[in-house]
Simulated assay, not measured.
Amino acid sequence: MHTTRMIKALGALSFLLGAQLSAQGPGGILPTPQDTPNRQGTRGANFLHIGIGARGGAMAGSVGSTIAGPTAWYWNPAGAATSEGFDLTAGRQNLYGDLGLGQTYAAASIPLIGGVVGLSLNTLNSGNMLRTTEQNPFGERLGGSSFSWTSTALSIGYAKRITDRLSVGFQGKYITEGITDVSTSWVAFDVGTQFNTGLYGLVLGGAIQNVGGQSRADGALLTRFIQTGDGTQIRENRRVAFYTAQTEIPVEFRLSVGSDLLGTSNSLFGGAGGKHLLNAEVSISDATDYSTQYGLGVEYGFRNTVFLRGGKRFYNDDRWVGGSAATYGMAGGFGLRVPLKGRALKFDYSFQNAGALQNIQIFSLEVTR
């Protein structure tokens, strides 16, 4: 079962890479006028690009200006400044259909030091894969040896409302990824802001994320002991390590504009205190390892209890190969908010189309005021 899953995952990824290379001219290394060079696949910790939270997933990542609560520590730290009590969120993300990749996250926000302090954990796991060798390319069946790839980001942050319209936030991250006995680690930081213009419910959001240095892989599996001597007598056993290149993490910039179209006193169409809420947001994101992406998200709420959401992400690359460019990057989902002894329990779900890599499903649970 693990072998079949591994073959499916490798097959899908090979298909995407092959299509990308074939579009780049003879030998797969020369760009054509229609396909300019890019930096895809040149950074470590790429899991940082996978958004967390079902609300953000359902709106195709277009939440940077309207995000609030603990999930804001991923999208825009400034959004966490609105927490008025202890807020907690957790979620599970099933990545790419039945390929067995899973992502788990948890975050908490606590009002402290005149603002809000937050902790978050974001981890991705490949699931067990059979260890292979040149002699056993489909796994060492008799030994049953397996391994898994794990990527983790642990963060601590602080957010504060500077005025009734302006919020800022920042956080530090410790990021690590790899397999048992071989891993790469980085230290990075994020900074973000949200500004409510007071005009027709317009809110501006911006964040710079994953700003850090370089690092190289290290671990026991990269270490060997060699014997030195003159051919007749061993003089010593010397410990050596394989050389590994320095790797950077993907610095990312997010800019978004959101609007309360309906439901508040500042809404474009008014309706403060009504049964219906309607939010819309457009976003632009750019990173050191992908083309500029655009997104659009819409959220409808009824009595602040039931929510329907939808969105579309425009990736501006060839990752949709094997499906339809019109549907690739489309997302949708719903949410339910239940009052609970002065607090609220929120459950959210989202589904995203990932083309040849099937889909991403996210389940989120949040306890807030």
Rank of each mutant, 00 (worst) to 15 (best):
Q93H: 11
A60I: 01
Y200Q: 04
L10F: 09
G102I: 06
P111V: 00
T150L: 11
E252L: 14
L17G: 01
R303T: 09
G28K: 00
F351D: 11
E299F: 13
Y294V: 03
N122G: 06
Y294Q: 01
S364D: 15
I156N: 09
T36D: 09
A241G: 06
T368F: 15
A78L: 00
N196G: 10
G229C: 03
T104F: 14
F138N: 00
G51S: 10
N46Q: 13
Y290A: 07
F147G: 01
P37I: 10
T152N: 05
A58T: 12
T3G: 00
L202D: 05
R343H: 11
G69K: 01
Q34F: 15
F138I: 05
Q171D: 09
E134Q: 12
D190T: 04
W149M: 02
S183A: 09
E299A: 02
L296E: 10
P111H: 03
A325L: 14
D218Y: 13
L262T: 01
T292C: 07
S126F: 05
I67P: 04
S350W: 15
K341Q: 15
A354C: 08
T247H: 13
M129W: 10
I162P: 01
F314C: 00
F253T: 09
T133G: 06
S22G: 06
N316F: 15
D260S: 08
L101N: 02
T228L: 05
T228N: 01
E252V: 06
N196S: 12
E281N: 06
V168A: 09
T327E: 06
W75H: 03
D181F: 15
V117K: 04
Y328L: 05
F351A: 06
I226H: 08
R337P: 03
G172Y: 15
G355F: 15
L101R: 01
L199A: 09
F314W: 13
Y174E: 07
L21G: 03
T123H: 11
T264E: 09
G169C: 02
